[in-house]
């Protein structure tokens, strides 16, 4: 087969999962990163594609800032963050000369880059490709879904925080999935409560239960709630492997359970 012809560089990728949210700052990149790390811990080969072009956060979370992307015969080589080369990332963050530079692009230019990200990255063999998206339902999302459609993505994970303002935006995102024919794996509720480090009192900073109610309302699975853990925020800032280093965190069981559900979902579909 010619290098240009389908299925191209994604031929070796078995399952594609998109992480979506109508609202910003609810933890899409965090959930993406954690899900990838959790799947990686289950012995899978995982890739992360960051299509948030105006605000790429994934490189920082995995301490891959400042890494450069190289070219090879079959396209761009993603950045590997582990020794065994089983966790790879691709992000616009690697293509910027200065980290503070703004990518001030309108839609058509963003679409072209996303298409390139889908077709020209030499991922090699991967069990999972997790796609992190910017907030909303616009250019990046349409382009990513369109470009990935031939590869039959496994589905989308919707991230929300518990408060009504965020849940409202995620309802719109569900409509987006329905309109574009993207299956919904389930809803993850992030920042579900904060355990005070001084007195261990749990406060619901952003009220509670919104994610679960939303899932029930929309008839999609609820994958779990991840509590707010300042330690987690700190380790993501430093880019440490939180899954390995903080096995005592209240967020870990929740994340592992979510990863297992994604694995089950993938298994139910069978290897293709």
């Amino acid at each position: 087969m010619e290098a240009e012809a389908e299925p191209g560089n994604l031929a070796g990728v078995r399952h594609i999962v998109l992480v979506l949210s109508g609202k910003g700052g609810v933890g899409k990149s965090t959930v993406t990163t954690e899900l990838a790390l959790a799947l990686h811990r289950e012995g899978k080969k995982v890739g992360i594609l960051d299509v948030d072009l105006c605000g790429p956060s994934v490189p920082r979370m995995l301490r891959a800032q400042g890494c450069a992307v190289h070219q090879c015969d079959s396209g761009w080589v993603p950045v590997f963050v582990d020794q065994g080369q089983s966790l790879a990332i691709m992000s616009v963050g690697f293509l910027l000369e200065k980290p503070d530079e703004a990518v001030v692009w309108r839609g058509p230019k963003k679409n072209a880059l996303i298409k390139q990200f889908v077709s020209d990255v030499a991922w090699g063999e991967l069990d999972f490709l997790v796609v992190d998206t910017p907030p909303g339902t616009s250019d990046e999302h349409l382009s990513a879904v369109e470009a990935l459609r031939p590869y039959q993505p496994l589905g989308a994970i919707l991230v929300t925080t518990p408060q009504a303002v965020s849940v409202g935006d995620v309802r719109r995102e569900l409509t987006f999935c329905r309109k574009t024919g993207l299956r919904v794996i389930g809803v993850v509720e992030n920042m579900s409560g904060f355990v005070c480090p001084h007195c261990t009192e749990c406060t619901n900073l952003f009220s509670t239960g919104g994610g679960e109610e939303l899932a029930r309302h929309a008839g999609v699975p609820f994958l779990g709630s991840v509590p707010l853990d300042p330690q987690l925020a700190r380790s993501l800032e430093g880019g440490q492997d939180f899954v390995q280093e903080l096995s005592g965190s209240p967020a870990l069981p929740a994340l592992t359970a979510i990863a297992r559900k994604v694995l089950d979902w993938a298994q139910a579909r069978g290897p293709d």
Partner: peptide, 17 residues
Amino acid sequence: FVCPKCKKESQIFPPTT
């Protein structure tokens, strides 16, 4: 964030930089 129970302050989103 000031805990409503013990009134002590903690950093939920720590200003690491």
